[in-house]
Design a protein around this nucleic acid. Structure first.
Lengths: 299, 299
DNA sequence: ATAATGTATGAAACGCATTTCAATGCAATA
DNA sequence: TATTGCATTGAAATGCGTTTCATACATTAT
């Protein structure tokens, strides 16, 4: 394998010239260029990319912080980022956090250590101040509304989307409406809550905390929601569900339990994941893959 | 920020001692250790990890080659790898290939360049020889049967699983059986085909190429399968489906089209993804997450 | 008391490619 | 012919942490 110096010696040129050839710089005589390539072939040489990283001070790697890889919402964003990164010669370092704040900080630390050139945070637990502090070390893009903070972000207007959903249900005649979200503390969830309250205010209904279901991420969480609903004396007539997966779970488990959908319970969800088409779920599309793509370009 | 030499100067020690402190080596006087930490604090120092990588000759990063991040089959494996990698202080570099052979080679090249210490290949398009050639540069683990080749692998016995599935359907009285898979050329798919043929031979039925559906990956592919089935004069009475997602699609689209399931068409699938429970699909569990975990440990 | 261990620490070499700076050769313009 | 400028090339500095080797002192064993 050897290193650039050996190549230089074998080709009878200086290391600078080898580097020029390797990086496709102009101003190298054709014959020397050829000699260098031949030496590279002969020694089966490959650049030590860590030396390149050190020398250049950058890695062409961007980090992506997500809570779970195997949730469609996040894997779709990741997909978008990955495809776009690849097309631009970047690599992706995956930080799966499970919403563990320590792991998020570890990931941010990688920016300071120059392991990554930038970071895309798809879902956040650490506080804003911390992120702002780290952003001196490199670009950080958030996939949520940053509320005027001095941070880059690409975000879906979940407030608007949720409001749209609420209005749709209200127009259908519903007044008793609940909703399901993934993690009640997130920024996106707060936007949804605000939209929920706003919509209810307009029809003079009070929000019902018992109709708000937290921790709804996967299809199987729908089962829990259905079970809760069945135990209630007074049930909502409609549910806004932040994930198609969960909606699918609610609908199928609900039907198993004899819940008539949409007669007893209307379900409206978000993402427009193929599962919703399959199950005939009414859903509002969220451009997740595009968001990933944009997030990449902001970096 | 500065570097290790500045820390050394400020703390009044040598760089070697700083390195010892940084790496928690013994044989450093407590007072010097303290002085070093103080200097680190004062200068807000962090190691340049690229220098560490270069110096150590390794990165504690492992690469993972998958065709698509947003398919449950692969994201579940990835999930398993990610969780385990994290617990062992490793990071994950994601190579999404879309089954593009060039991208696979690029990823393998990263092993040679020492960008990654090892690679886990979840699905492969390049030929064996090439992988064997690259394995001189570091550990490579395949997630498929390597058929006695000199390569590490963790694999699910898809032959056995498929045979089991076939026998289950046969026991239920089916003789006209078809199947759906993701990519007909993969090793895993060949194992499935072999199992299919073997099972049919035992009941003296001939394989029906028209009942074999390729490119079935996502829920929406079920729609295509249903459409094909409806066009056939003679249909299978049962389908073995390599992915729960696709099975879900077949069942829901099928029902929409008036196909009675399981009366007209029995469906048996694999993975045991939560979706199958939701839809009451009979499924055979595949330990994907565990496979990811094991794959990591082989490296 | 002497040899043998163990603790503590620094100088210097090592890993490797990039990039700046200076120098050389040659061609085109004044 | 003198001058300006571009094409080419190499020496050396740079980025930065790890690790080996040698050294020095303090113990403990013989």
């Amino acid at each position: 394998m050897g290193n650039i110096r050996e190549i230089a010696k074998l080709a009878g040129v200086s290391v600078a010239t080898v580097s020029r050839v390797l990086n496709h710089y102009p101003y190298v005589k054709e014959e020397k260029r050829k000699a260098v390539w031949e030496a590279i072939e002969k020694l089966n040489y490959t650049r030590n990319i860590n030396a390149v990283h050190l020398s250049r001070g950058k890695t062409s790697i961007i980090g992506i912080i997500i809570p779970y890889v195997n949730h469609p919402y996040f894997s779709t964003i990741t997909e978008g980022i990955a495809a776009e990164a690849l097309r631009n010669g970047y690599h992706l370092l995956l930080f799966q956090t499970n919403y563990d704040i320590k792991k998020e900080i570890d990931a941010l630390e990688m920016l300071k250590m120059k392991q990554v050139d930038g970071i895309i945070i798809c879902s956040r637990t650490v506080d804003w101040e911390r992120i702002e502090a780290y952003s001196q070390y490199g670009p950080i893009v958030l996939c949520e509304d940053v509320k005027g903070r001095n941070l880059s972000s690409v975000s879906i207007d979940h407030y608007y989307a949720f409001l749209m959903g609420m209005n749709y249900l209200i127009k259908k005649g519903h007044r008793k409406i609940g909703y399901c979200i993934g993690r009640i503390t997130g920024t996106n969830s707060k936007a949804r809550q605000a939209a929920y309250q706003e919509a209810l205010k307009q029809i003079n209904e009070r929000p019902r905390p018992e109709w708000i279901f937290d921790q709804c991420l996967y299809i199987e969480d729908g089962e829990r929601v259905v079970a809760s609903l069945l135990r209630m004396k007074e049930r909502p007539t409609a549910l806004l569900v932040s994930s198609d997966q969960v909606a699918a779970g609610i609908i199928t488990f609900g039907k198993n339990k004899g819940l008539k959908i949409p007669e007893n319970l209307a379900v409206l969800s978000f993402d427009n994941h193929p599962i919703s088409e399959a199950l005939n779920i009414t859903t509002i599309e969220l451009p997740l893959s595009v968001m990933g793509k944009k997030a990449f370009h902001m970096i």
